[in-house]
């Protein structure tokens, strides 16, 4: 009975998470093609307007429409997150699948490198990589993408270690299936649920990491808007124009909440 109740509750997590995430996906595309105002157009006569009908989220220190900038920011942050997870997820999954399945000395070496990378706080590593490559959105994507490889590799590897000795894999091998066929056709579909959870958590972390890097001023560069860079700009006006910080801040919170609920919901499915 109690078990059933938590199941229903988890299902609600899944639905709400999916709802929020889909909403943000829509906003991402909207932000790419349409914003009510030009997000970079300055207007000195409309500085620091509080939220009102014509500017639902108010305006900033340059008189730019915050709602338009938040929309653009969602697109930018979303783009960074998707690319980052795509890079880290693909490379990490391939590394994890091969090392987990084959094992041996290569596995040992790769995993030690992995552990070492995992040992550093990831934001610190991102800082190092970005300061070498220079700031800008492509370098942020590259840095975060590299950073995400180890976590994917570790999780996928343990799944492959778990599955490679299952009877159905032995059975496939008995029938003469080659290793690559077993890795991709027979085992891979089995790890999809785990991979899905890892991907949602990855999005979550990518959004936070992008916001963090941009907040520190080494992420997305002006005039491009990102949720993190807006927060960074807003901090000097926290008391005079609190909506400037609150709007992008709340957006990040909601964005991340969506992914968290979603992964929680998938986990329990």
């Amino acid at each position: 009975m109690a078990e059933k109740r938590t199941k229903v509750k988890k299902n609600i997590y899944f639905r709400v998470g999916l709802g929020i995430t889909l909403f943000f996906v829509v906003l991402m595309f909207v932000g790419l093609i349409y914003t009510p105002y030009d997000p970079n157009a300055m207007n000195s006569s409309e500085k620091f307007l509080a939220p009102c009908l014509s500017h639902p989220m108010g305006t900033d220190n340059f008189g730019r429409d915050i709602f338009s900038r938040v929309l653009k920011g969602i697109s930018m942050t979303g783009l960074v997150a998707v690319s980052t997870v795509a890079i880290g997820g693909t490379i990490g999954t391939i590394i994890g699948a091969l090392t987990g399945f084959y094992g041996g000395i290569v596995d040992e070496i790769v995993m030690r490198i992995n552990d070492t990378l995992n040992g550093f706080p990831s934001i610190l590593l991102a800082l190092v990589i970005v300061s070498i490559l220079g700031p800008g959105k492509y370098n942020v994507i590259l840095a975060l993408g590299i950073l995400f490889i180890p976590s994917f590799a570790r999780i996928v590897r343990s799944e492959y270690i778990n599955y490679k000795n299952r009877d159905f894999v032995k059975s496939a091998r008995l029938m003469g299936a080659g290793s690559l066929r077993i890795i991709f056709l027979h085992i891979f579909p089995n790890i999809l649920p785990t991979l899905l959870v890892t991907i949602t958590i990855g999005f979550n972390n990518a959004v936070l990491a992008e916001a963090g890097l941009s907040y520190l001023g080494i992420g997305i560069q002006p005039p491009d808007a990102s949720l993190g860079s807006m927060l960074s700009d807003a901090q000097s006006y926290l008391f005079s124009a609190p909506w400037y910080a609150v709007m992008p801040g709340m957006t990040i919170v909601l964005f991340v909440l969506g992914f968290s609920l979603l992964s929680e919901g998938i986990c329990s499915k």
């Binding site: 009877d167 159905f168 059975s171 496939a172 003469g176 579909p189 089995n190 999809l192």
Partner: peptide
């Protein structure tokens, strides 16, 4: 070996739950 065991010898495992691929 792969050619032989497929065509000449086959094996059935103890646990029918794990010897079939759950995703196929």
């Amino acid at each position: 070996l792969a050619a032989i065991r497929g065509n000449d010898i086959a094996m059935i495992f103890q646990e029918p739950m794990t010897s079939l691929n759950p995703t196929m």
